[in-house]
Design a protein around this nucleic acid. Structure first.
Length: 638
RNA sequence: GGUCCGGUAGCUCAAUUGGAUAGAGUCCCUGACUACGGAUCAGGAGGUUGAAGGUUCGAAUCCUUCCCGGAUCACCA
């Protein structure tokens, strides 16, 4: 008798029975089977979740591969021998294991044909295959969060696409998601635009000039900077400036270098325009009606423009937070924290947090004059959001230059004992570079969001015209399809890169429609739709294929489809949409190959035809759902 | 300088979280259907995974040191 010490034999097989009912959890079945095998054969109890069980690599025969090296010590046998024994056990005891083969320390398992046929029958028509059961958790995702003095640019686009797709993925993983942004609608920047419009605008409006309204406001911001530079240049020629230069320059510092760094001081102390802008900010803070009305008017224009861009990108928010409402928040949290000993007060009245034991520094949370800083506001806003929605966790989509800020923010919230504080995540992403280098607004190398969208759509239009497949459609329908294609190219190009990586945005490559691109994936979908249309014309009704012998490439597709739910979970867990993008590409690629090598409508048998139609349908459904998680829509033709 | 992040084919990116011969796209070269759509498919060329040590059955992945690039270290946001 074998050394069963922990579980009697009956129990093991009872477990198999239960597992057989639950057809979906293939990997669970396999790993529990392996655990039982190890217990039976070597008398050791192991945790099934610690096994390395992964899809078999293409060049080998099999569906799933078990790495048996970890068992060498306990079994005191050679890896191939162990693999052989476990394989034989599984084949004898686990119905879904049809066969196995051993290569060195790798045990390759063949899953039974019935399992795959069943899998296809049950899921082919499921439009949301992969969507997880509700977790009961509520997650807030903050993204975009622009300033209102300038239109959106390429950096925002990466942010928005990451935020949107993460939201979709978290939702697909079973969470309730609240999408928010915080709009930086106050401060000196918008005052600059306001002042420039007041001084030089001569009553112009977006309508009167025919300018998209956020660009209209942005232009005045630029106008302000231009006028300010003129003023600064002129001032540099005065005696006052010369004296300052002589008294404050560092050794060897050129005049030019000195004044480059002196700009802020000039703005705050000598500039006429600077004085006017600051005066306006004070007037705004005092609530002077004239300034507040101007502020409302100009921000209104900006929001109108943003809204148009968001709509083109297909994104929206559940709730907007405005900094003008939240910038004074957080002080009560500081009070509470002071009482609880989370913060301490310096002699000058400023309030600090000592985060040294968390590997961070001392951080000021309230100025000596009692006013709040950036982090104070974020503390208050987090608290407000919790009160508003009762969320379990929050995700902040913000560029990686603010990594430190969020470390500090999360640490302080934890110390304040905020209930959601242990479930905060900073979805930090790398900057977007151009092939020519960094984007710099001062040097005019910023890629504008609206321009970029227009460019990719135009490129899609040209490509579509060359192909001439859209001829029979109305202009509106054509336009709709062309926009889907262009945006797919842009979005996929950006999302496919892992968020943490700094990425190079090559405008030329971003409009590519061949190879590893959005349109390539759309094309796989369109091919299926085309086949299905044709099948319907032929009056094809889904037939049976229970005795069909699955071909290798078809199995490959089924295998990929099968992993999709796990891919969604992985993407949600890691807050990484690029996982989904790569999955979609790889599935589309496999399908293109299959489509090329096999006949569907003229298949060798009715069973083959029925099977392939179902398989195609499922591929299309999964591609459609997967791409929708990235905010990419599929056209019916292209 | 401290801390954090990155470094993989000429270029843009992957690598099932420590697994088998490091894979795709692009560029260059060569091919493919009287077919369900060629925005497709196949083949070739292209690598000391920044470097050197270490950990082990096994390392692009973990550890140590160094090199390169970036971010950050404000009573700015």
């Amino acid at each position: 008798m074998s050394r069963i010490s922990i579980l009697p034999k009956k129990t093991i097989f009872a477990a198999f029975k239960i597992l057989k009912i639950n057809q979906m959890d293939l990997t669970v079945q396999l790993s529990e089977g392996v655990a039982s095998a190890v217990l039976e054969l070597y008398g050791e109890k192991i945790d099934p979740s610690t096994l390395t069980l992964s899809p078999t690599r293409k060049e080998f025969e099999g569906d799933y591969t078990l790495v048996v090296f970890p068992f060498v010590k306990m079994a005191k046998k050679s890896p191939p021998q162990i693999a052989e024994e476990i394989g034989a056990f599984l084949k004898a005891n686990l119905p879904i294991v049809a066969d196995y083969n051993v290569i060195q320390g790798f045990l390759n398992l063949n899953v039974s044909e019935n399992f795959w046929l069943d899998f296809l029958v049950q899921n082919a028509d499921n439009q949301n295959f992969g969507k997880q059961k509700p977790t009961g958790k509520k997650v807030m995702v903050e993204f975009s969060s622009p300033n209102t003095n300038k239109p959106l640019h390429l950096g925002h686009i990466r942010n928005i696409l990451l935020g949107w797709s993460s939201s979709q993925i978290l939702e697909a993983a079973g969470n309730e998601v609240v999408k928010v942004q915080i709009i930086n609608d106050r401060g000196i920047a918008i005052c600059k635009s306001m002042l420039a419009w007041q001084k030089f605008g001569e009553g112009a409006t977006p309508e009167s000039t025919g300018t998209k309204s956020d660009h209209f406001v942005g232009n005045f911001y630029v106008e302000f900077e231009k006028k300010f530079q003129e003023e600064y240049k002129n001032w540099q020629l005065t005696e006052e400036a010369a004296t300052i230069f002589e008294n404050n320059k560092k050794e060897d510092q050129s005049r030019e270098e000195f004044f480059k760094k002196y700009k802020e001081v000039f703005f705050n102390q000598y500039s006429q325009l600077g004085a006017e802008a600051r005066k306006m900010l004070l007037a705004w803070e005092a609530g002077e009606p004239e300034v507040v009305n101007l502020w409302k008017k100009m921000n209104g224009w900006v929001y109108e423009g943003f809204e148009a861009t968001y709509e083109k990108l297909g994104v929206h928010f559940d709730k907007l937070y405005y900094e003008s409402d939240t910038y004074l928040l957080g002080k009560d949290l500081i009070e509470k924290g002071l009482l609880d000993g989370v913060f301490y007060k310096k002699d000058d009245g400023s309030v600090w947090a000592n985060l040294e034991d968390a590997g961070l520094d001392h951080k000021v949370v309230l100025r000596s004059d009692g006013t709040s800083v950036y982090i104070t506001q974020d503390l208050g806003t987090a608290h407000l959001r919790y009160k508003d929605f009762g969320v379990d966790s929050m995700v902040y989509v913000v560029a990686d230059e603010q990594n430190y800020h969020f470390q500090v923010l999360f640490e302080i919230l934890k110390r304040l004992g905020e209930p959601y504080a242990t479930s905060l995540f900073h979805l930090s992403y790398g900057m977007v570079d151009l092939p020519t280098g960094k984007m710099k607004s001062r040097e005019g190398t910023v890629v504008d969001a609206d321009d970029l969208i227009e460019e990719v759509v135009n490129e899609a239009r040209t490509a579509a015209a060359e192909r001439g497949e859209l001829g029979g459609l109305s202009p509106d329908e054509q336009q709709e399809i062309i926009e889907k294609i262009g945006l797919a190219a842009l979005k996929f190009f950006i999302i496919k890169v892992h968020p943490k990586k700094r990425m190079t945005f090559n405008p030329k490559e971003s409009v590519d429609m061949q190879g590893q691109t959005g349109p390539y994936i759309q094309n796989a979908y369109v091919r299926v739709r085309s086949v299905l249309r044709k099948a319907e014309v032929d009056g094809f009704a889904a037939g049976k294929f229970s005795d069909y012998k699955i071909q290798k490439q078809e199995k490959e597709l089924l295998n990929q489809l099968y992993t999709f739910p796990a891919v969604i979970q992985e993407a949600a867990q890691n807050y990484d949409p690029s996982t989904i993008a790569n999955f979609c590409f790889s599935l589309a690629k496999e399908y293109h190959r299959f489509y090329h090598d096999f006949s569907i409508l003229k298949a060798e048998s009715e069973a083959a035809k029925a099977f392939r139609i179902q398989l195609s349908k499922m591929v299309a459904n999964v591609l459609n759902f997967g791409m929708s998680l990235l905010g990419i829509e599929m056209p019916e033709r292209m």
